[in-house]
Nucleic acid binder design. Structure first.
Lengths: 135, 135
DNA sequence: CTTTCAGGTTACCTCAGGGTGACTACTACC
DNA sequence: GGTAGTAGTCACCCTGAGGTAACCTGAAAG
């Protein structure tokens, strides 16, 4: 599948070597923010410490399962701190760690860029619908 | 699933309304760059016009199917221009459109940020392996 | 006795993204 | 007649992300 590099083409160094190998930071960053709920949860916590139920209310459409799953992943990654209070009824608090705050930065950039360039996405959508009509 | 907003909590406006609704630019941008091969192909074409086979050689691990599928999606979205030369053997050229170039911008930012903050991902990986060992 | 509340877990199902391998077309070259 | 080279498509399968619904805990309140 991965061909031998073409000896006859001098400028043909692989893209992957440069930036997108699985273990390169760019790929890792993409993997982190690509999952559906991660950036949303990150954003939610960026506005302050939250309880579980509070987050579920603030993020419409998220299921309990996905909320805990996402939080657990972020916790083991060290991006979110989870503080459990052994009271009845239970109480748990989530907040971003320093690492979490740093990751919030590129996500915030993406959102701002997307908002400022919103018209790009309208153009893309138009292209897409034109294509599907004349197909 | 999505609860009624809690009337007793004044600051509890939904995160989704703010930035991550399906139709909001930030979500659209994420959807675009989240798929495995899209940013790679974008990056590859950012270094100049390419032929199909040239790209397959420069992007190790990509299958013919995913390469054409990705290129087709980018084409119908208007991010990539495809020029077919009806010669034998066949020849096709791909290049970024103006729209494609604009989308290359945030992707490039992500890569640069990731490279500059590479140590974050090492820390995350360490956290992850520690967690899996003591589990 | 059973319902409520917060904060979950578990089992089960679906669907899309992605991978593999075979096959196509057309001509030139050996 | 066979094979190579380019640019694909097609049919099939597999995996993992994500969704749904039921269940659990433990004390307190009705």
């Amino acid at each position: 599948m991965a061909d031998h590099p073409h000896p006859s083409d001098p400028q043909e160094t692989s893209v992957d070597e440069a930036v997108f190998h699985e273990r390169y930071p760019s790929r890792r960053l993409l993997d982190l923010i690509a999952s559906r709920w991660t950036p949303i949860v990150l954003f939610c916590l960026a506005s302050g410490t939250h309880h579980y139920g509070q987050m579920q209310r603030r993020i419409p459409g998220i299921s309990k399962k996905m909320l805990s799953q996402t939080l657990r992943r972020l916790e083991t990654d060290g991006l979110v701190h989870r503080e459990v209070y052994r009271v009845v009824p239970p109480k748990t608090e989530y907040e971003l760690t320093e690492l979490g705050w740093r990751l919030h930065e590129p996500v915030r950039f993406l959102c701002r860029w997307a908002a400022e360039n919103a018209e790009i996405f309208d153009r893309i959508e138009r292209n897409r619908t034109v294509a599907s009509v004349s197909e």
